[in-house]
């Protein structure tokens, strides 16, 4: 029901560091109605053109500045993903994605205060890498 927030339009781009493309990133809004500490972001899954991205390659940033691996996030309680703040999902992949269209499926799973099972949101979009 919050699936429309999962994947921000026109947000897919390759990431360059020191002249080299190190991976790609996209932006996402929380599929909940309040901010939560990162330890409550239970999981993030990325699928590109039908291929699932290895969990170890995914980094998440609640603010576009500081990044954590999903393993690290399990214990991060001092940073929150605030409501109204777009988080960044970064995938480490030397060379990044080829320019042009890619079918991206992004899933985020959060633990919600009063629902016993984790709550997930998924959205699939065709986005363009310039």
């Amino acid at each position: 029901m919050f699936d429309n927030y999962v994947l921000t339009d026109n947000s897919l781009e390759n990431v360059k560091k020191d002249g080299e493309i190190t991976g790609y990133k996209m932006r996402t809004r929380i599929t909940y109605y309040r901010g939560i500490p990162l330890s409550m972001v239970h999981d993030i899954q990325v699928e590109v053109d039908g291929q699932e991205v290895p969990r170890e390659s995914i980094r998440f940033s609640p603010d576009g500045e500081i990044y954590f691996t999903l393993e690290e996030m399990k214990t991060v309680t001092s940073y929150k993903w605030e409501y109204g703040q777009e988080g960044v999902v970064y995938v480490e992949q030397p060379g990044g994605l080829t320019p042009g269209e890619h079918k991206i499926k992004l899933t985020q799973v959060s633990r919600v205060a009063y629902i016993p099972v984790p709550f997930s949101g998924t959205q699939t979009k065709t986005l363009i890498v310039q």
């Binding site: 939560i36 500490p37 330890s39 409550m40 239970h42 399990k74 309680t77 633990r111 205060a113 009063y114």
Partner: peptide, 9 residues
């Protein structure tokens, strides 16, 4: 307000 009783996994 909410108490994040499931703060940890």
């Amino acid at each position: 307000i909410f108490i994040n009783t499931n703060l940890y996994h």
